[in-house]
Every structure is written in C-alpha cells, then in structure tokens.
C-alpha cells in the first residue's frame, strides 16, 4: 500500500487517489504552430523511467485536487509531493 502525502490534506492511503500518468509531458500551446512531432510527443511518447518519475495523481476520495508526486518506479519510495501548479 502506498501512502501519499496530499499537499492539501496530509498523509493518506493510496486507495483515496487515482493515477493521472506522467507529469512531465506538456501539452503544446494553442494558437501556435504545432508540428505533428510535438503532438506525437505529447499524446503517445513516454520516457517511463526505471527510477525517479514525476507523475500526476488526483485525490479523488479526498479534496479532489490534482497533485504531483515524485516516486521511484523500482522501489515505490515517494520523495516528495507538490500541488499541481508547483514546479518540481
């Protein structure tokens, strides 16, 4: 069982959260020239590292806020959690 420290609510069990995937991918900006490769990078291509991974989670059964979690994909150790608006 993972224990995730929600920056808004404190330490809670994994059961209260839902996963949102890689937080490092950035949506191409609108109103700008966006190449097919940029869309490809955003929609499909993932680094999926073995080790530190910055990811989005939603505290769906709590405050319902999206948060960022930096977690090790080999050991499941959680290094830090941030509000969605904060930069890692």
């Amino acid at each position: 069982m993972l224990h995730i420290k929600c920056p808004h609510c404190g330490l809670r069990s994994q059961n209260e959260f839902s996963y949102g995937g890689d937080a490092a991918v950035k949506r191409p900006e609108l109103n700008k020239e966006v190449s097919d490769q940029d869309w490809d990078n955003f929609v499909y291509l993932r680094k999926s590292p073995a080790g530190k991974h910055l990811e989005l989670w939603q505290h769906i059964s709590g405050c319902r806020q999206w948060i960022k979690v930096e977690r090790d994909t080999l050991t499941h150790e959680i290094f830090k959690t941030l509000k969605a608006s904060e930069e890692a």
Binding site: G21, L45, R46, S48, P49, A50, T73
Partner: peptide, 16 residues
C-alpha cells in the same frame, strides 16, 4: 523496453 530505448536515445509509445 523503455530502459533499453533510453540507451538508444529513443522515446517509445510504451509505458511500463
């Protein structure tokens, strides 16, 4: 796959 792809500087449509 992703571990070896990184050594090849490739990013793939794969998540582990």
């Amino acid at each position: 796959t992703n571990i070896l792809a990184e050594k090849l500087n490739m990013t793939l449509p794969i998540e582990t």
